[in-house]
Computed example of a mutant assay.
Amino acid sequence: MTTVLVTGATGFIGRRLVPALIEAGHTVRAMTRRPQDYSGPGEPVGADVDDPDSLAAALTGVDVAIYLVHSLDDKDFERKDAQAARNFSRAAADAGVRQIVYLGGLGDDDGELSAHLRSRREVEGLLGTDGVPVTVLRAAIVVGHGGISWEITRQLVKNLPAMVVPRWVHTRTQPIGIDDVVRYLVGVVDKEEALDRVLEIGGPEQLTYLEMMQVAAVVSIGKRLPIIEVPVLTPRLSSYWLALVTDVDATTGRNLIDSMSTEVIATDTSIRELVPGEPLAYEECVRRALDERRRSAEDRR
């Protein structure tokens, strides 16, 4: 039986991944900074990637560690994420971990990457610095209830009668549903063929951001939205605009918007050989995200 540590166990992906790993037969440790508040499945363990001394106990006896850490809400996220990856690499090696699985970002290495995507690439390398084999899954936008990128799309469609958009809405991306991300993460755990590999994951469609918003509009409100394109809308201005019409803070919004001028398309489908199965279409992912949001709202009543 494989013992798996999930960092960020209470986050958007982690809280879905932990029960999926348990269902697959693994023993799971749910790593969080506040284990006393953790009410999900698995064994809660307290640790913080920014505190190297806290990681040793959490990683002792762990076979596979899944790294789901980022600091997009911090203006100094590149430095913070790099140091956190160094801390985790050393602690994992000292504990004898035999695989680290990391969810990174798509984007052509030969192209001009945004600070966000550059940071993801740097973390990929740093996690393997001390010799633990790393499996990287690179994804574009993950569609699911509670995901930041999806929430931006949902709230823009919901809150605006028409959208003023910059030119980057014509950039192509390859959205993937949260269910498929979890399925792929579970599928590469402790799999020898996945060690020291970079695998690209994406849904079946390549869409522009504009096409994604229009599909979301039709599914959620039953009609397409009027779109007004403007020639200049800088990332800074876009982030302030997002902060006004959504609940996403300006720092996180700007870090994400910086990446939206970069085409993020999967060019390698070898993940499907390791983890068979057809990924869900974007429209179905949107429906599932909206349904989960409705159920969550009803549960809170």
Rank of each mutant, 00 (worst) to 15 (best):
D190C: 07
D196H: 14
I178N: 01
G222M: 08
M212Q: 14
A57K: 15
S114K: 04
L21Q: 08
E292T: 06
A56H: 15
L72W: 13
T171D: 06
D48C: 09
I265Y: 09
L185D: 06
V248C: 05
I265W: 06
V97I: 11
E211H: 07
T267C: 13
V6E: 06
I265A: 10
V132K: 02
A194R: 04
K158M: 13
D48S: 09
S119L: 01
P44A: 00
L137I: 13
K158R: 15
A93Y: 02
A250K: 10
E151D: 15
E43C: 01
D130H: 15
G253C: 04
V132D: 01
L137F: 05
E284R: 08
D73G: 14
G46M: 08
D63S: 10
E151C: 04
K191Y: 06
E229P: 00
R254Y: 06
I22C: 02
S296P: 00
M213Q: 09
F77Y: 15
S149V: 09
L59V: 13
L106D: 06
K158P: 00
F88Y: 15
V157S: 04
A115S: 09
V218K: 14
V123P: 08
V182L: 04
S54Q: 12
R183Y: 10
A281Q: 06
K80C: 03
I148V: 15
Q206C: 09
V6Q: 05
R90N: 05
Y102W: 12
R236W: 09
V188H: 02
L280S: 02
E112F: 04
E112N: 11
V97G: 02
I13A: 09
T7M: 13
V4G: 03
A297K: 14
S149K: 07
L195K: 15
M213W: 06
R15H: 10
L117F: 11
D268S: 11
I22W: 02
I176C: 07
G104I: 05
V182F: 03
A266M: 14
V198W: 03
L17A: 05
V264D: 11
Q206H: 13
L207T: 08
L199P: 06
T32I: 12
R98N: 09
S71M: 00
G40F: 10
V143G: 09
